[in-house]
Computed example of a mutant assay.
Amino acid sequence: MKLRSLAELKMLQKVIAQRAAAEAAAQEAERRRLIRLDREKRLFELAVGPVQPLVTARRVHHPPRPVDPSPRQRQLDEASVMREALSDDFDVETLLHTDEALSYRRPGLGPDLARKLREGHWSIQRQIDLHGLRTDEAREALGRFVREAHQQGLRCVRVVHGKGLGSPGRAPVLKGRVLRWLVQKKEVMAFVQARPAEGGAGALVVLLR
């Protein structure tokens, strides 16, 4: 038990370090974006030197055209950080509980949490189906889904990763990656393999903070 607790502590420290690195990367991306915007605003001045605007009374003012409010660059930066933050090499095996079915709960949480989740104590409020997505697409889609569900106050969601019947060798490749990604998400408290009526071995029921 002591060795297992030590392994969980090391894994938790690794998760915290990865999260700190992701936050640092996001801050650095934002800093570079602000520098680029400032240089773009002063591009003419930097090219020709100091200038003095002409004074004229016959000036026609053209109001600026509205800009698309979608924060495209921020979304791209977040997607980049998400790819770096969710590692495919994360060792999740020591954190998984394999009793009658696969389950995971954050260190410090009791086994009753996984049992209640498996028994349907929380109703599933939303789901995402990752079938047919490439690895990078699935990683970004899952990260965005979990983040938005948590922001909207949802507690219980389902992640459908499939049983791998269409994969080479009929092995559930995406399932293993989804397990690693979910364990690294700070919003995730626990997850269990879905009941047969909810997708069975091809899906996970996830409890959010």
Rank of each mutant, 00 (worst) to 15 (best):
R105Y: 07
R59I: 08
A114L: 05
R118D: 02
R83P: 03
S87C: 11
A101I: 00
R83W: 07
S70R: 15
L96C: 01
E84H: 11
E100H: 12
L109G: 02
L130Y: 11
R72G: 07
L117C: 00
S80N: 08
R105E: 06
H62E: 13
D88L: 09
Q125I: 06
V60S: 09
G110S: 12
L96I: 14
P63C: 01
R126I: 00
A85Q: 12
L130I: 04
D112H: 11
F90G: 05
S123F: 04
G110N: 10
V60L: 15
R74A: 12
Y104S: 01
P71A: 04
R106D: 05
F90P: 04
E78I: 09
R65N: 06
A79H: 10
A114K: 03
H62D: 09
P66I: 03
K116T: 00
D77Y: 05
R65T: 12
K116V: 00
P111I: 01
Q125R: 03
S80Y: 13
F90M: 01
L113P: 02
V81M: 02
G108I: 01
H131P: 03
S103W: 02
L102V: 07
Q125N: 03
I128F: 09
V92T: 01
V60R: 15
A114D: 05
Q75S: 13
G120Q: 01
D91C: 04
H62T: 11
R105V: 09
T98N: 08
A114I: 02
W122H: 14
I124Y: 06
V81Y: 00
E78Q: 15
P66W: 09
V81N: 06
S123M: 02
P66A: 11
W122P: 09
D77F: 11
G110A: 11
L102R: 05
R83Y: 12
D68E: 11
M82V: 10
L117K: 00
D112T: 06
V67F: 00
R59F: 13
R74T: 06
